[in-house]
Amino acid sequence: MPAATSKRVRGTQVTRHFIIGNTACDLPAPGYPNPPPENHSKGWTVYIKPLPNGPDMCTWLKKVQFKLHHTYNDASRTIEAPGPFEVKETGYGEFGIEIRLYFAQEAGEKAVYREHYLVLAPYGSEEQQAKQKSQNLVVAERLETIEFNEPTIDFYKALTNEDQFNWLKVKQGQGKGKKPTYVFKGNADPTAQLPEKALENGKPAEGGLGAGGAWSSQFERQVLAQLQQSTAVLDQMLDEEKAMAEERRKKLAAVGATVGAAAK
């Protein structure tokens, strides 16, 4: 049952970004049964994970349900926090995976649905496909966003607590009789927002988007610019098609008039 209105933070919205994706490889491969099950040629893992320098998903995510193809035993797989929120399997075909996300109890929010299409074959340019084949690794990911509008007070406290970044810290400077300290690893500041630039091995990428390029404001702006450019091209094509259609209409009208005159 949703929390009472009086217990929500009015006029506030909190956004959380996360990644949905899968990896796939040809069998046999490390980490998968060898020999593989009969007729199974691919090993794959579908998952939900946080951004490389983002907050801990367990702050807001209670459990994830993955609904696989009905031919799998126990096709509905539920992973509880702290995760990892992933399912590892073998198979031979691609299919859509329904994903249901359940929020933390204090959120007072209903579960939401997402879907991921399992990608097993190399894709992209010839160069990208060649790289995937040489590494025996296909990675298909996309960025997803959830917005919590007017969250409950308790949930808002969890979403704004610095402890949600503790998973990014490592122990440092521990000596005999000294209390260890914990510091953030990598050179990228922890943030709940998309990083400005792409991250590669925990650092801002130079001269390109890098492996984590899709998860940055820079990449987001590039995609928007490409969409705007494509929209302009499409609008031009539609205008040209309308002009040609009008020309065809006039020609047909002229032919109709000629035929009508001859019939008289």
Rank of each mutant, 00 (worst) to 15 (best):
T145Q: 06
D56G: 11
S230Y: 08
K264V: 13
T145D: 02
E126L: 10
Q13V: 12
R249P: 05
I153D: 11
T152F: 01
N136E: 03
Q129S: 07
E144S: 11
A262E: 12
K110E: 07
L27T: 05
P122N: 07
A261D: 08
G43A: 05
M244Q: 13
S216W: 02
E106H: 01
G208N: 01
N149A: 10
Q65D: 01
I99G: 01
G83V: 12
Q132N: 01
Q132I: 02
V112I: 10
F85C: 07
P204T: 09
A81T: 06
Y32L: 09
K169P: 04
Q236D: 15
P35R: 14
G91P: 13
K242Q: 05
E115A: 11
P37L: 13
T78F: 00
M57P: 11
Q129G: 09
A4E: 14
G11L: 07
A225H: 12
Y32K: 08
C25S: 15
T152S: 15
D56P: 05
E240C: 04
L168F: 01
L238P: 08
A188N: 03
D163K: 13
Y113D: 07
K49G: 09
V259G: 06
Q128M: 07
Y92K: 14
V223C: 08
Q174Y: 00
Q129L: 08
I19V: 14
S216L: 04
V138I: 06
Y117M: 06
K185H: 07
G31M: 13
D154A: 15
C58T: 14
P2K: 07
A81M: 04
L143C: 02
L227T: 05
D189V: 04
P151I: 01
Q132S: 03
V112W: 08
V119L: 04
T12Q: 05
I20F: 09
T152I: 01
T231N: 15
W215M: 10
K133A: 12
V87F: 10
E246C: 00
K250V: 15
T45C: 15
L101A: 04
Y182Q: 00
A158M: 13
E162S: 15
A205W: 00
Q164M: 15
H40R: 06
P36R: 10
A111R: 05
E246P: 02
V9F: 00
G202P: 01
G21P: 04
I20G: 04
G260N: 14
A4K: 11
V112H: 06
F95C: 12
T71R: 09
Y32D: 10
A263Y: 01
R249E: 15
K42G: 08
K62W: 14
Q236T: 14
G210T: 05
W167E: 04
I97C: 05
Y92D: 15
A29W: 04
A261F: 07
I19P: 08
W215C: 01
E150D: 11
P35K: 15
T71Q: 08
L27F: 05
Q129D: 03
N149I: 11
N149H: 13
F165T: 08
P84N: 11
T78G: 02
C58M: 11
G54P: 12
D56A: 12
